[in-house]
Amino acid sequence: MKERPIGPKIFSLNRYLKDRVGETWMIIAFVMVLLLPFIVGAGLYLKSRILLQEHSIWTLLVSGNWNPQKGEFGLAPFIVSSLWVTALAVLIAVPVSLLSAIHLTQYARKWFLNAMHPVIDILAGLPSVIYGVWGVLVVVPFVKRLAEWFDISVSGYSILAGAIVLAIMIIPFILNILIEVFRTIPEELTEASLSLGATHWQTIKRVLLRKAVTGIISAVVLGVSRAFGETIAVLMVVGNVVHIPKGAFQPGYPLPALIANNYGEMLSIPRYEAALMLSALVLFSVVLLFNFASRIAIVQFEKRV
């Protein structure tokens, strides 16, 4: 069969032009997305540079003195608070999510898992201010009671309250990933383990959890990243007192709360804006570094199992 002749040249030119334009658009969009983190990072750096020229980054990070009027901008109270709240939240959220995911994928019936999906999505979609209000109404009094039980008298606005609210907020995200992780493990692997005489629990512990390890890391990283940066809900229950917290019942003042509470208010104080930008840069870098570290960990584990 003879091939049909190509149409008039003007049409094909048009066609190629469209093709080129389409391709270029995609590259531009892609580069923009790729550059975004660098642009954000560079902006924060430029804004905080004045402060960094006057003090070394190290003293700013480890100093506990926060007196903007005197020109002292030690970020340690905020960094320590952030670490406390995030670590506690992840410590609460990961075991709960992991056990739930195992139950839902290994023991529960299919319809139950299907019914859980919308519940998890609703939890993930609730605005964080709602969690904050709920935290003030429920979690803060609960923590106060709990502290009294230990013979400690506090207001309840504390690191622990922030961590509990945060944990509840990140559970749906972690749980969603974990369910997917366990669902994608082939059933034959479970069958292989069972056929060797392993009990269901031995199979979960020795085979499925090992197989899921990279997915579990990803889920934890997502949880940490979200928890570290979450602002409103934590700010509402954590107390916002500038000091280096020494216990879970003490109030804290995490980095995001510092920025949200103060930006735009006391900017007449010299270097104040730069200090807030620096804390934003710290927040940004920690999340970035954490993500990099986890990438490396995941690659290492993937080689092993």
Partner: peptide
């Protein structure tokens, strides 16, 4: 039931080595 399963070795369509 675990003892019963141990009396039979199972070989599946594709090999599924345990992650170890």
């Amino acid at each position: 039931i675990h003892d019963i399963r141990k009396r039979m070795g199972l070989l599946s369509q594709r090999p599924y080595p345990l992650p170890m």
